[in-house]
Simulated assay, not measured.
Amino acid sequence: MNWEWFPTFGCSTSNRRIPHEPVFFGKRPGKAFSSTDQVMETNGTGGYVVKHSGACLCGRVRFEVDGVFESFYLCHCERCRKDTGSAHAANLFSASARLRWLSGEGCIRTFDFNSTGHVRSFCTVCGSALPNVQMDGALLVVPAGSLDTDVPIQPQGHIYCSRKANWDTALEAVPRFEELPEEE
């Protein structure tokens, strides 16, 4: 097993570290990709670069990420729940991928909660979560929902489950609807 260590991604002020191992679901660099998958481009040296694209909700901010994501976690800490207004944040992490802003860079703001390292970047027009670079440029954090291309890995786990919302239990048993439920 290949263990690498990343800090807690700003979810806590503790110094605990979280192990990760990439988990792919049938698509690895070098295999065929469909038009809805991330784009494979030659890098000029005979190899390929995985390219992901994304945007905010209003479309003013657009970006590309060149490279692979090493990990994907769903964080249930209070800060991530406040950031997203949901049960958890869903963030992709990479120590090697590169972020490139295509448009709207002037609409991006970054918030570091009380200088704790809990960092969130967002569009100032629509409020959508956007990628950010943390740990003095060593770690790229990409909100999974900000990508327009398919997410190439499955989440490796739920973290900070001891701090999840009281209503976040047995959600897989809640009825599912393809769209809005029918009115009665």
Rank of each mutant, 00 (worst) to 15 (best):
A173P: 01
V133E: 07
M1P: 12
T13R: 14
L99T: 02
E184N: 12
F63T: 00
G67T: 04
H158D: 08
G145T: 07
G67L: 03
R163I: 04
C161F: 10
L102T: 07
E178I: 07
S103M: 08
T36A: 11
F72W: 11
W167T: 00
H118I: 00
G145E: 03
A90V: 05
S12W: 01
H88L: 07
C80K: 05
D112W: 02
R100P: 02
T42K: 15
S128P: 05
Q134G: 04
C161N: 10
H118Q: 11
K82W: 11
C77W: 03
N132E: 03
T169E: 10
G44S: 04
S162D: 15
H88R: 07
C11H: 14
D83M: 11
A165K: 00
E183I: 13
E178N: 10
F9T: 03
N2H: 12
T84G: 06
I153N: 01
G30S: 01
R62E: 12
G44R: 04
C107P: 03
G106Q: 11
H118T: 05
N166K: 09
E4Q: 15
T13I: 10
S115C: 09
C126Y: 02
G26L: 08
F9W: 07
V49K: 08
P175S: 06
A89R: 00
T110A: 08
E41T: 15
S86N: 08
D83Y: 09
A173I: 05
G104L: 05
F113I: 09
L74A: 09
P29W: 02
V68C: 14
L57N: 11
L99H: 10
F177R: 07
T124R: 10
L99M: 05
T169K: 09
E21Y: 13
E184L: 13
V125P: 00
P29H: 05
V119M: 09
K51D: 07
C11P: 02
V119I: 15
F69M: 11
D150F: 11
T8Q: 15
Q38R: 15
D37L: 00
W3E: 14
G67F: 03
V65A: 01
I18R: 06
T110E: 10
K164W: 08
F111E: 03
W5G: 08
A173F: 08
G104P: 01
C126R: 01
C80G: 01
Q154E: 13
R81E: 01
A55M: 06
F122Y: 14
D150Q: 14
N114D: 14
M1D: 13
G30Y: 05
N91P: 05
F111M: 07
F69T: 02
S71I: 06
A165D: 06
T169S: 08
G47D: 10
S121T: 03
W5F: 12
P155I: 07
C75P: 02
D150E: 14
V119A: 01
A129G: 12
T13W: 10
